[in-house]
């Protein structure tokens, strides 16, 4: 392996880690109960997203995007960071975790430190967290085999809801374009490929197994992912999801950092902006909280679908124009 190709695979892996963690953090925080139909809807949406993204990354070059688009993408990154913050606070409340009021303050303190570190620190930490998540997901089937309840398949659910949820929670789609600006095409393709595999294989399967395992015993409130891991009669403990809970908070803090770092790339003069951004993202958007929760879905759906589509059309047209020359 030549140094160049080694470096390239390193970049691709780090990109993939950030993208997968972006999706995992929203997956952990989601409160929609797990059903077989939800898994089906998620799978369909993920396949569609992967199919849409592939030509976008293959045909076009992201290094010459118009400044307006770059600005929009950066604004979106801040918005997504805020969405994740709100989701994490929601999860904190749902799981009845202590000192919910302190969480934004703690998160802000953590973000102030992490955002000031280099982008490579985020990328490297992402790889480590992804390794931990992979180890966790590899061990999950053992648990499912022990607690599987086939009647769980029969739970009523809507594939359309799963489809829409997947679109709504796919905030990483525009961020892939942002990632594209900073990496070679091959790296981005590899990263997006790993991300697509995670979305189409791992997450729907987790939902499916969650539905099978818990079935009608799942309580309606709270994150179904953590509910799925809670019961552990053999150890006589009420909940045993400590590892996943820690992973969820660490992942979310990391992806919020990634969004904020993407919004203000490390250049001369942006260090102060980077430090201010967490405040903007956390406090300003928290003040909009009630209305924000309602408009969040629509906003993310629009930016998550319309923005990549617009970019795709723009780049495809430019590509067509350049080809005859």
């Amino acid at each position: 392996m030549t140094p160049a190709s080694r470096c390239s695979s390193r970049n691709a892996l780090q990109g993939a880690a950030v993208l997968i963690l972006l999706r995992l953090s929203t997956f952990f925080c989601s409160a929609v109960p797990y059903t077989a139909a939800l898994a089906k809807g998620m799978l369909t949406a993920s396949l569609l997203q992967a199919a849409m993204l592939l030509p976008l990354l293959l045909c076009t070059d992201g290094h010459n995007d118009p400044p307006l688009l770059q600005k929009l993408l950066r604004i979106y990154a801040v918005l997504h960071a805020a969405v994740l913050t709100v989701s994490l606070c929601g999860l904190h409340r749902q799981e009845h975790l202590p000192r919910g009021v302190l969480l934004p303050l703690l998160l802000t303190a953590v973000l102030l430190y992490t955002v000031s570190r280099s982008d490579s620190a985020t990328a490297r930490a992402g790889v480590l967290l992804l390794c931990l998540a992979c180890a966790g997901f590899l061990l999950l089937p053992l648990r499912w085999l022990r607690f599987a309840q086939p009647p769980g398949f029969g739970m009523p659910g809507s594939a359309a809801a799963g489809f829409l949820m997947e679109w709504q929670l796919s905030g990483e789609l525009p961020l892939i374009l942002l990632l594209r600006e900073r990496r070679q095409r091959r790296d981005t393709l590899c990263s997006a490929g790993a991300w697509a595999v995670c979305k189409t294989a791992v997450l729907p399967l987790t939902v499916l197994f969650g539905a099978v395992q818990s079935g009608e015993m799942l309580p309606p409130a709270g994150s179904p992912f953590f509910r799925m891991l809670s019961r552990e009669p053999l150890t006589d403990a009420v909940r045993t999801d400590g590892f996943w809970l820690m992973l969820c908070y660490a992942c979310t803090a990391l992806v919020i950092t990634f969004c904020l770092q993407s919004a203000a790339p490390m250049q001369r003069g942006t260090r102060r902006l980077r430090i201010i951004l967490p405040y903007l993202a956390v406090f300003a958007l928290f003040s909009l909280s009630p209305g924000f929760l309602r408009m969040r879905g629509a906003a993310v759906l629009l930016t998550g679908f319309l923005l990549p589509a617009a970019v795709y059309l723009y780049r495809a047209m430019r590509h067509k124009k350049q080809k005859p020359q």
Binding site: L97, L107, R117, S118, A121, L128, M246, Y249, A250, T257
Partner: peptide, 25 residues
Amino acid sequence: AAVLAGIPGIALACTVLLYHICGLE
């Protein structure tokens, strides 16, 4: 961190530590 926010507090403190180590060159 644990006294302030329990397991989430530990997770966030560990994130800072992770960033500290990963950012060192």
